[in-house]
Design a protein around this nucleic acid. Structure first.
Lengths: 343, 343
DNA sequence: TGGGGTCTTGTAATCGATTTCAGTACGGCA
DNA sequence: TGCCGTACTGAAATCGATTACAAGACCCCA
């Protein structure tokens, strides 16, 4: 049985003031006379008082928590992002709840339900696959202000979305390969229907056109962001009559699987085929060959999303934040998985 | 402004009963007459009522949340564990809070403070480096029952600790290498002072003695669990006059760095040196060479920890749970990073 | 017919904070 | 001296649930 801790009543008794005064001492100290304030703080010290969050939240009609929706906690890509989010809320009194939408998808009305329950004050969703219905329901309840997307987003909605400049990333990758002399460039995509898949593929395709490079249907290899799908892409490439000399992968993990698969099929990277990844996860610089990739500042992404949500939860409803701030720069990191094509 | 949602009062009014009856309908339905119960559920439907957690928690003197302390969210090792924990709590009404103890270490009294605040009901700590003081303070407040360790633990305390059989893992690794014909086996350790470092190193050293293998001081290479430390270990090995023919690494990430470093130094794996990892993170099977390693069931570890904490938070204080259940089996996974030594 | 038991339900206290409203004290000014 | 504004503090309502206690209805059996 936890030792029953001091309440505001106890403090008031010790300081010989009312509970209202104690409350004010904490939230609005300059309202009090100097002596009173000191007496209260003294009493707080003595009793070891800490304000009870449940009571405070009940009275203030807030939950004191935000929810982060992660498509798959098991993916290393998310870890640093979460660290960033968590840091963004560290100096506030919001708790950070994390839910994995893959291991347990949200039920109908569950998201809005969390708000209504008083469980959460806001949401950061890393999952762009949230159902339209769930979002609409939140909007209908006037909760639209409390939702921020991160990395992914939902087309056709106008929730703020902190994200990397995916298009620019794809263009950097293609230009880099083009610069090395590659012309036959393939793309291993993410899962169909994912906004990142679309953004990266579209930019890749259009940049390829801009540079006047050849395009073949089979060079767009559908997959998902998994290592396995990279492995599968390798098998497809090995079976092609007209092989590309370079592959731009939609994720580093895909690149790892791809390289591993190519190697198993007797092709070496970058000698026979160059590979570019996307994300720059920790492993990438130590992979053999070290992976050329598009760096995303994952920590910053998380941190910014936290800031953005905090703004929106704050007292002033319309913030001055610039939507342009929501696009985070990416960077090409050249390592050893790319080289000029064989002549 | 979120649409003010229905309260228990509203439901009571609609159903023409008292709030007590509504409350009972939810928590103890068979106490009510059939007709009443139906009327209440009908009213709940009509009003869209959802119980307010803050109010409920306040009244029931509970927080409705558990905290998971993660040493470094950025490490891919933890992701699946968190998914397991999260799944373990999915069917309960506990929220799962996650805090990164590296990016923001716990302050004095902060942990006990969370309990007293009514912010959390329990803790799962993946961090074995929690200060003794913080733990003692919790014990003193009678909160000892509410703490469970996971993966790591703190020597000399008797909190339950769900963990892999680290000793067995180390022995499996050494026996595997011994079986291949290796005699000169080195070990790249984790950070000094970490319980896992100690457990794995001690078991490695004693198994090496059991098998009557040579031991050299420099073959115990101190590091931490990072890729970088594996890289550094490679440099040390390259500089040795008497090189080992195999290295048992304290983590897969260390193995990756090691292999990368050896390769950079002109030694290839497994031809020149065999490498065994520990953890079997997702990447390991796709690394080149695919990594021979000790598999930890990370999802199960997380899930078990959740179960264990739930038991302890439940109404019956002394659970029947067997402490033996807390040790999770590990498995040797043989891939391509190990081979017989060159003759 | 009356006492005792079971079923069902309601009244009201309670959890621990915040905040509105009102009151007191005091100083300044006419 | 009397009125008013300012500074400070307290009493009490409130947030939305849970639950101890009590009371009414009904049945059974002596």
């Amino acid at each position: 049985m936890p030792h029953r801790s001091a309440t505001i009543q106890d403090v008031a008794r010790v300081a010989r003031v009312s509970t209202a005064t104690v409350s004010r001492a904490l939230s609005n100290p300059d309202l009090l006379a100097d002596g009173t304030r000191e007496a209260v703080f003294e009493a707080i010290q003595q009793t070891g008082y800490r304000v009870n969050q449940a009571a405070r939240n009940l009275r203030m009609r807030r939950a004191g928590a935000v929810l982060v929706l992660v498509p798959d906690l098991g993916k290393p890509f998310y870890s640093k992002i979460l660290a960033g989010v968590s840091e963004g809320f560290a100096s506030t009194d919001y708790a950070v709840l994390i839910a994995d939408t893959e291991s347990r998808p949200l039920q109908d009305g569950e998201l809005a339900g969390y708000f209504i329950d008083g469980r959460i004050d806001g949401v950061i969703s890393l999952d762009g696959g949230l159902s339209r219905q769930a979002l609409d329901e939140c909007e209908r309840q006037g909760l639209g202000e409390r939702i921020v997307f991160l990395c992914e987003w939902v087309d056709g909605t106008d929730f703020p979305a902190i994200r990397s400049d995916n298009g620019e990333g794809a263009r950097l990758a293609i230009r880099h390969l083009h610069g090395l002399g590659h012309r036959k460039i393939a793309h291993a995509t993410g899962p169909e229907g994912n906004v990142l898949t679309t953004a990266r593929r579209d930019a890749m395709v259009s940049e390829r056109a801009v540079l006047d490079l050849p395009a073949r249907e089979e060079w767009i290899i559908r997959g998902d962001f998994s290592v396995e799908s990279g492995h599968a892409a390798a098998r497809k490439i090995l079976a092609m009559s007209e092989r590309p000399t370079a592959v731009f992968c939609s994720a580093d993990t895909v690149a790892f699987g791809l390289i591993s698969g190519l190697q198993a099929g007797g092709l070496s990277v970058p000698e026979d085929i160059s590979v570019v990844g996307f994300d720059d996860i920790d492993m990438s610089q130590y992979y053999i060959p070290a992976l050329t990739t598009i760096h995303q500042d994952r920590h910053l992404l998380g941190f910014r999303a936290a800031e953005r949500l905090l703004e929106r939860l704050g007292p002033s409803p319309s913030s001055v934040a610039d939507a342009a701030d929501d696009l985070i720069d990416v960077e090409l990191v050249v390592r050893s998985s790319t080289a000029p094509p064989k002549v």
